[in-house]
Design a protein around this nucleic acid. Structure first.
Lengths: 226, 226
DNA sequence: TGGTGTGAAATGTTTCACAGCC
DNA sequence: GGCTGTGAAACATTTCACACCA
């Protein structure tokens, strides 16, 4: 549950807002001006009741009997997501993944600007990526302050993620996106989102194992006619 | 809720198993042989009651008054996650991100083997990455069959993700990890996990906006003495 | 004694179903 | 007539608190 202004919005709802926004932008791109909860829901991969409930936490944006105005709903969700103000972003750890994330081109279109790249490896420091020079992580405090960074993407090796995160937090950053497979121990007011590719694959593997167990079981229960 | 064999395990629990496994492997690396629910929970970033409850869905692995044997719990969770059997993996879309994912070195250590890279771009096709040659996506059906691929990582542009996913599913693949920002429409028995970097940043931006609104409000409620 | 395993309570989320409005 | 907005019900998850046992 997250409080914003007067209202409180479920965490699960917030996690879905980006999907809705994406679907709305697709619709706008197709020239559609008005949509319905069922259309928007299908494009977002959720149920229509869920979508309506989610929006109802934020306010009331549709017209009964008609639907939602694509343009105005889109800009409302954008502003709810805080995409009106600019978010200045730094990436710490410019290995394979950090490099790929630096070259991701969608930042500016979504209200983010990438303003710094940092790494500890002398081979990487000084290289250029995405129009920025990679700086040494020793200068982290200075760089974050100078560039007024408010969000950090951590793509360092797991072993140093905790210590880098602490330094980042000490600089006043309160939002971190972490790609290292570690559970960061940070003050409660710091928001950490973690993306763990290996973990996702393991979850898929669990499903695969469950499916295998399931079909083995049903094969036993209802043996195939020979 | 996921059924596996006789028991049913909450989805949320499954999503945490990789964290526990990682923490256990860290412990094993440190030479620790026995741990407690509170230690393991802290390292995994969850509460100790939650950890015990999660494990209780899978069975009963600890010793009252003592704790858990690191080695045996670790191998139990590994096998529950289906990491005993080999999972053969293909990456479709070898752009920035796909390339970075190909070079990720942790697959084999976790029971996955990367066996194919596919892309539609003639410039990329034929290049080598991670010891594999990138093949043309036209040959997708043949390659997936020949290499017995059971899991696919989709890192294509959003526009083609749906159509590629359908071809992949037609080849019998039932587990997909998708990095494209789209809601794939696929049969119910296909498990899709999505990772959306831009979406994660947007969620962080929402938290930032909530924080800003909060402090603006409290500044108004309790105006600073002048 | 100390830490697991687990019912039961509290909390959070999704789904249902329909009143209300265009 | 059709679609939104929303209480209330159903469901899922987390937390509590304590029985149980090495």
């Amino acid at each position: 549950m997250i409080e914003i202004g007067e209202v409180t919005v479920p965490t699960a709802t917030v996690a879905r807002l980006p999907f809705y926004l994406r679907a709305l932008r697709d619709l706008a791109g197709e020239g559609v001006e008005v949509t319905s909860s069922s259309d928007l829901a299908e494009r977002s991969g959720v149920g229509s009741a869920q979508l309506r409930k989610d929006l109802s936490y934020l306010g009331s944006f549709g017209t009964r009997g008609v639907g939602y105005d694509v343009e105005s709903l889109s800009s409302y969700i954008s502003s709810a997501l805080g995409l009106g103000s600019e978010h200045r972003l730094a990436i710490v750890g410019v290995g394979n993944l950090g490099h790929a994330l630096a070259n991701y081109s969608g930042y500016s279109a979504r209200g983010f600007s990438l303003v710094a790249l940092l790494d500890a490896d002398p081979v990487v420091v000084g290289q250029e990526a995405a129009g920025l020079e990679v700086e040494h992580v020793d200068a982290l405090e200075r760089v974050l302050a100078e560039r007024q960074v408010s969000m950090v993407i951590l793509a360092t090796p797991g072993g140093v993620a905790q210590q880098v995160a602490e330094r980042v937090v000490a600089c006043g950053v309160r939002e971190i996106l972490c790609f290292s497979p570690v559970a960061l121990q940070l003050p409660d007011d710091v928001v950490v989102r973690s993306v763990d590719v290996a973990g996702e694959l393991q979850i898929l593997a669990f499903h695969a194992a469950a499916r295998a167990a399931q079909s083995a079981q049903s094969a036993q229960a209802v043996p195939p006619a020979v």
